[in-house]
Design a protein around this nucleic acid. Structure first.
Length: 278
DNA sequence: ACCTATGTTGGATC
DNA sequence: AGATCCAACATAGG
């Protein structure tokens, strides 16, 4: 589940706990999702200092002394957990970063979709540029004017697909795209060109409010997501549609439905999110 | 036991 | 161009 609020939560916690720490050793149990051999990862990180932890879209960037970076994507089931030196790895722990302060950073991932790449600054920047990410929705660069212009240039796209695409804004995944559309009363299949400006403005504001409020709750734990301290996020109780198929809409009382859009389940309220008149 | 679903994303194939 | 499917995998639920 890690989408923007979950990844942001983890980054802030890591920043607090491991910034300034020095790496003692890196132990790899499963190497397939690394871009370098385990021995090289260990050698290049040993005795290096962690300068800070940043986020771009759903990517976690751990800055390392000397111009290298760990680029981590958690995909569906990845976790980064702060552990003590004597804590046991779990069944799905793939990489352990041992720090000289007695802490460890464990990367685990049941489904093995997530990756860790060791990249120098130049390659990191190139990688990120290639993703074509739109602005960070909680930064000042995410202006209404920019959002509006980006959407208008894609007037034939279905709104839900565009929100998942990361190009007009970065960081939304299935949960928060679904919730934002409910908040703005927009049916997920609506072509952007058919949405009135006023409603797009509501969507813009809803996205910002939703993400802030989800971060405050440390994100949504449905199945496997845990924050860096191993705690679940509490935002699920605030979900209005995601995970509520068959339940009553809290705004109008209709029964929440789900359809498939781009292969992903999309929950919506059939009464307050009107299907576009084709 | 079988079938379906699940947070992501990039690439192939119509 | 856009829609659809699949591929990385494990696990849970009906």
């Amino acid at each position: 589940m890690p989408e923007l609020p979950e990844v942001e939560t983890i980054c802030r916690q890591l920043q607090r706990e491991i910034k300034g720490a020095t790496i003692k050793e890196v132990v790899v149990g499963f190497a397939k999702r690394l871009n370098v051999r385990p021995s090289e990862l260990n050698q290049r990180l040993k005795s290096k200092k962690i300068l800070g932890v940043e986020r771009r879209a759903k990517l976690i960037i751990i800055k390392i002394n000397g111009g290298s970076n760990l680029l981590i994507h958690l995909k569906l089931t990845g976790r980064l957990l702060i552990k003590k030196a004597d804590d046991q790895p779990s069944k799905h722990t793939h990489v352990i970063f041992k720090l000289i302060n007695g802490l460890e950073l464990h990367f685990e991932d049941a489904r093995k979709f997530g990756f860790i790449k060791l990249l120098d600054d130049r390659v990191l920047n190139k990688f990120i540029e290639k993703q074509n990410y739109g602005p960070e929705p909680l930064s000042r660069s995410f202006t209404w004017q920019k959002f509006f212009a980006c959407l208008r240039s894609r007037s034939k796209s279905k709104i839900k697909l565009l929100l998942l695409e990361q190009s007009c804004l970065a960081g939304l995944g299935n949960i928060y795209a679904t919730e934002a559309l409910w908040a703005a009363k927009i049916h997920p299949l609506t072509p952007i060109g058919k949405i009135p400006d006023s409603q797009l403005k509501v969507l813009y504001r809803s996205i910002i409010r939703l993400l802030k409020s989800a971060i405050r709750a440390r994100g949504s734990s449905l199945d496997s997501y845990l924050d860096a301290y191993g705690r679940p996020g509490l935002f699920v109780s605030k979900h209005q549609v995601y995970g509520r198929v068959g339940k009553k809409c809290r705004r109008c009382g209709a029964t929440i439905q789900s359809i498939k859009i781009g292969g992903r389940g999309s929950a919506f309220c059939p009464k307050c999110q009107h299907r576009p008149t084709s």
